[in-house]
């Protein structure tokens, strides 16, 4: 079982002092939630779990340990592993300070979808996967569900279920089962100018400027963020449509070419703004314009917008 594999791997790493600590998943408040666990000693390994709801991307947490002579083990799924590459490419956190514990991922369940049909308020005791089915054993009962019906949207279009970078891989590689067709982006592209405007105005109006989308983002790794600057005051602190739109546009541009499409920004938004759709629009455009892959997918590919090739399209000439 994956949970046991994680525990034995981490125990060994800690015992042999190959890492200082590991960032993994621990049990959350209910069966559908996990909470990051920072495990520094063998005694604490018991906290580690694996869950079909392990959605959080843990890679960003290494940013609390910049400039430390430290080796951090991080448990990553395929999508999260792109963040590792991102942080290394941005020279934020060196590859040698990472110990990447890769988990091949068959898709993560969407808590909100599952909670509509099943009671997730108990604790997750155990779970088993049989083919297409997951059986969740919780303190409030046992639920059997067809995985295909309850995955996170991002999992249906996952390009890298197996981590693209790892020091150890816990399990067999998983092949992508669908390709990304950017249907969500196309749906908005196909709207009229007025409809697009109305759609995004509605979204940005909701924004409460909590900056969770920024703080969770592994591409948002600047030492001083433009949104924290008082001078120059690029974006005002007032939460109104104009300032909120400026915030979202600037955020999207700042991560353009570096966003790894892990979808965390949309997940954490307390107001349900599809923040990641802006990033995905740009990834789609960059794929069309420059024939590149999703950032972080290919370690050989540098930052798209920081790379010049003579055959780049020149729409602006």
């Amino acid at each position: 079982m994956l949970k046991e594999k994680i525990k034995s791997t981490v125990t060994e790493l800690l015992e042999n002092k190959r890492i200082d600590f590991v960032i993994g998943y621990g049990a959350g408040s209910d069966a559908g939630t996990v909470r990051p666990a920072f495990v520094k000693s063998v005694e604490e390994v018991e906290q580690l779990i694996w869950s079909p709801f392990a959605v959080n991307n843990l890679a960003k947490f290494v940013m609390d340990h910049l400039y430390e002579n430290i080796k951090i083990g991080v448990i990553v799924k395929g999508c999260d592993s792109r963040s590792v590459i991102r942080l290394v490419q941005d020279k934020v956190f060196p590859r040698e300070n990472f110990y990447v514990i890769g988990v091949p991922c068959k898709g993560i369940l969407d808590k909100n979808k599952v909670a509509k049909d099943f009671d997730l308020s108990g604790d997750l005791v155990d779970f088993t996967e049989q083919g297409d089915e997951v059986i969740l054993k919780t303190s409030k009962g046992e639920f059997k569900l067809r995985k295909e019906d309850y995955l996170l949207d991002k999992c249906y279009r996952c390009e890298t279920p197996t981590p693209v970078v790892y020091d150890v891989l816990l399990g067999e590689e998983v092949a992508p089962f669908r390709t990304d067709d950017y249907e969500d982006v196309k749906a908005i592209e196909n709207l009229s100018v007025e409809e697009k405007s109305r759609y995004w105005d509605k979204q940005f109006e909701k924004c409460i400027r909590c900056y969770a989308c920024r703080n969770v983002c592994s591409a948002c790794n600047c030492r001083d963020c433009v949104f924290d600057m008082a001078e120059p005051n690029w974006v005002g602190k007032a939460a109104n449509l104009s300032e909120n739109t400026a915030f979202h546009l600037i955020r999207a541009w700042h991560v353009a070419g570096r966003c790894v499409d892990c979808g965390e920004c949309s997940r954490v938004c307390p107001m349900g703004i599809p923040v990641n759709t802006l990033n995905r629009k740009m990834i789609k455009d960059m794929k069309e314009l420059f024939a590149v892959e999703t950032p972080g997918k290919n370690p050989e590919q540098g930052p798209v917008l920081g790379t010049f090739r003579t055959d780049d399209p020149e729409e602006f000439m």
């Binding site: 100018v193 405007s197 541009w253």
Partner: peptide, 20 residues
């Protein structure tokens, strides 16, 4: 930049970029 402007509902033609 132009593409994202248009994506959120600015009219095409509101924003121009030229290399001169």
């Amino acid at each position: 930049m132009k593409r994202l402007f248009e994506f959120i509902g600015f009219e095409p033609g509101r924003f121009h970029a030229r290399w001169i």
